[in-house]
């Protein structure tokens, strides 16, 4: 009888101890069971080298960056080299010679509108009057540029500005692909500067062609 009692006490104790382990760790990070199911042996984005499978515990690898700059001179697929340099001469040249390689279509304008809401609206404002939420909250000064009908700004200069920045505006090339930059310009020109959709943009004036943007 005593044996039976002792055993049952031990079982209860064990269960209690095991259930204690199910408690969360600090910061809410949960325990891991069989880390080889969680950690990748290959290098994953933003993961410390010291966290890779088989490398855990190797402190010499800790704090090694996995986010690296691409090798110098590499370009991503679909990239077209940009010939104008980041200077006032480049700005003027872009204004004179650079034209949108993509046709102005309803699709490109719609896509531009979506992008404008993501990348521009907090400074340039919903109506392009330079009164976005940042300006409204007085954390940013009022913008000198207002996208109005009377604004004479060639599309090349606009592209150059988005790419390299101008004045207080920073470069946005790392956030927007070249095509997206053009779509933005299409929207700003058609939506705010009231340029006709098929006007003389340096390219052939076209009727909306659905495949143009895809190509």
């Amino acid at each position: 009888m005593k044996n039976y009692l002792n055993n049952s006490i031990k079982i209860v104790g064990m269960v209690a101890i095991i259930s204690l382990f199910s408690c969360k760790e600090e910061n809410g990070l949960a325990p891991e069971y069989m880390p080889d199911m969680y950690r990748s042996p290959s290098i994953e984005t933003y993961v410390d080298y010291g966290e890779l499978r088989g490398k855990q515990g190797d402190d010499s690898l800790r704090n090694t960056l996995t986010a690296r700059k691409p090798v110098e001179g590499t370009i991503h697929r679909g990239f077209t080299p940009y010939p104008y340099e980041n200077s006032i001469e480049g700005y003027n040249q872009a204004g004179e010679f650079l034209k949108s390689p993509f046709d102005y279509t309803e699709q490109s304008v719609a896509k531009g509108k979506e992008l404008y809401g993501m990348f521009c609206v907090h400074c340039h404002g919903g109506a392009g009057q330079g009164d976005g939420s940042l300006v409204e909250r007085e954390v940013f000064p009022p913008l000198p540029v207002k996208f109005t009908e009377s604004l004479e700004l060639p599309e090349g200069k606009m592209f150059h500005t988005i790419t390299f920045g101008k004045g207080l505006m920073g470069p946005h090339a790392s956030q927007l692909t070249q095509e997206e930059r053009w779509q933005l310009i299409h929207y700003i020109r058609v939506g705010f500067m009231k340029k006709p959709l098929t006007a003389d943009m340096g390219q052939t004036a076209v009727v909306a062609d659905t495949n143009a943007v895809v190509q």
């Binding site: 199910s22 408690c23 910061n27 809410g28 949960a30 325990p31 891991e32 069971y33 969680y38």
Partner: peptide, 12 residues
């Protein structure tokens, strides 16, 4: 407890 293994909900 077993169901929370590897679930980092609330990790902050």
């Amino acid at each position: 407890g077993a169901a929370t293994i590897g679930v980092h909900q609330g990790y902050k």
